[in-house]
Design a protein around this nucleic acid. Structure first.
Ligand SMILES: NC(=O)c1ccc[n+]([C@@H]2O[C@H](COP(=O)([O-])OP(=O)(O)OC[C@H]3O[C@@H](n4cnc5c(N)ncnc54)[C@H](O)[C@@H]3O)[C@@H](O)[C@H]2O)c1
Ligand SMILES: NC(=O)c1ccc[n+]([C@@H]2O[C@H](COP(=O)([O-])OP(=O)(O)OC[C@H]3O[C@@H](n4cnc5c(N)ncnc54)[C@H](O)[C@@H]3O)[C@@H](O)[C@H]2O)c1
Lengths: 229, 229
DNA sequence: CTCGTTTTGTTCTCGCGTTCACAAACTCCT
DNA sequence: AGGAGTTTGTGAACGCGAGAACAAAACGAG
């Protein structure tokens, strides 16, 4: 789904030390879920939990959970379980959310406004450093404490703040252009909400969130249910 | 990822006729992408396309595309390719977007507003029939031509309009309650934007869209890139 | 110290999905 | 009509991920 060639990396990484573990993509996608479940448990005052407990909170199979965690190392204690805070820190460190990631959002329309106002960003290590839009009428509006600036400020902001992650919330037609500009000035991870296929050079990760695809998948199953009934 | 037990269905379906084809989940998830690519091609005036062309437009491998399409039937012509309009109709029919699906959205905050204003719904066979919110201050506001109504109107609306698909855009804490109410009054497909694990009975499909998980996956890969560099 | 209990970490097996490769089928040109 | 060139549809090989099952490790009781 991404432009990334994870397979080629298996041999390329350094064999020295232990910074070269290769975590399966399916596991990476579940680690944030575990992180959220652990945070819930911690807030509820739980100090320790078994793989069964955590799996239930995360909505997965406990065998799968243990296998996933085993890729990170042995952070549990047999016969006891996992220390909630300790495991939480280890997962957070592995994902990289112990540090702060500056993020720019491009396209401050309906969706861009909602994203800018979303509190789930900051609480998970992401900091919205800029809101950019091509339409001059949007400029100087302040959304969630950040003011909307011209799209042409992109290069300056990315360079100044060391931005690596960009979010695209423009119409589909503009998305490829925006992505090209982002890539050109050094952004290497893109989250795309526009319904368009982006082409980016190797080494740049793209993930897309496509609402209408999700609805169509639901519709397909709904139709099947109606047929058999 | 969903609560659906597709595996158990393989035998249960009727063997008579041809309405019982079992399309792999991975393929179902790509059909909407092909549909969109075909629409683009049609709008550009293309009447016919090869699997290479369509695969490029959809951002996938052409072998995968052909195999996906083969689950629907043989709608291409060897040596020629696919008729764009004909294939488009066949995929649309298979997914179920030739009919109109009424949808309710619950939780008309930042995200709910954006969703209600999203034009990509109607253009793909989804019709927003109601916007519901528990907060009385939101009521009677009109968003995109639909007025916001009390959450307690849910049962009435679902019954009157035959709604099968519900969208949850409330805070995480309310999501499970909303889902329970939806299920109780007959909704069998849920699209959940709240960052919480929903538990629903068998036969109900849940798909979740979780923005911060997507960002964390990007962050993970970003961190890896930084390490090896 | 030993035994039983609990729970992790890992091995093994199975099924699904991806990709390659090619025969079958169609068009067009001579 | 026949052969060359295209492009589909699918059989087969392969790799990854899910889940079951179990051995290894920790803990507590006696
Ligand atoms: N609204 C939703 O709920 C929703 C849901 C899913 C997907 N989407 C997609 O997200 C995208 C945005 O949706 P929206 O409803 O916010 O649209 P919108 O029209 O409200 O906002 C788009 C914004 O992008 C800006 N823009 C246009 N071209 C630009 C460019 N080249 N550079 C920078 N900014 C540019 C516009 O000025 C506008 O402010 C669309 O592609 C849409 O399909 C929206
Ligand atoms: N804003 C975003 O971009 C964004 C992105 C990803 C995920 N989310 C998630 O989507 C959800 C909504 O986000 P938001 O920013 O729109 O929040 P919000 O607070 O702006 O809106 C939530 C709305 O839900 C209503 N509500 C609360 N409890 C309800 C109930 N029991 N029944 C019906 N309605 C109820 C509230 O009155 C409010 O209008 C949250 O779970 C959030 O984590 C938001």
């Amino acid at each position: 789904m991404t432009a990334r060639t994870t397979s080629a990396k298996t041999l390329g990484a350094r064999t020295l030390g232990e910074g070269a573990r290769d975590i399966p993509e399916a596991t990476v996608a579940r680690l944030p879920v575990y992180l959220r479940a652990l945070t819930s448990l911690a807030e509820a005052g739980t100090r320790t939990c078994s793989s069964e407990d955590l799996a239930a909170a995360a909505g997965v199979n406990s065998a799968k959970l243990r296998k996933d965690l085993s890729y990170l190392g042995s952070y549990g204690t047999r016969g006891v379980g996992y220390d909630v805070d300790y495991l939480r820190y280890q997962i957070a460190r592995e994902i990289g959310v112990t540090q702060d990631w500056p993020v720019v959002i491009v396209g401050i329309g309906n969706l861009g406004h909602a994203l800018a106002n979303y509190s789930g960003f900051r609480s998970r290590g992401f900091r919205v450093v800029a809101l950019l839009d091509a339409d001059p009428e949007r400029h100087d509006e302040v959304v969630a404490g950040v003011d909307v600036r011209p799209f042409d400020d992109l290069e300056q902001i990315v360079a100044d703040q060391g931005v690596a992650i960009g979010v695209i919330a423009t119409p589909a037609l503009a998305a490829q252009d925006v992505a090209d500009r982002m890539v050109a000035c050094g952004i290497t991870s893109i989250l795309n909400f526009a319904p368009s296929v982006l082409s980016v050079p190797e080494g740049v990760d793209v993930r897309k969130v496509d609402l209408s695809i999700e609805l169509q998948i639901l519709a397909y199953h709904e139709q099947r249910k109606a047929q058999t009934a």
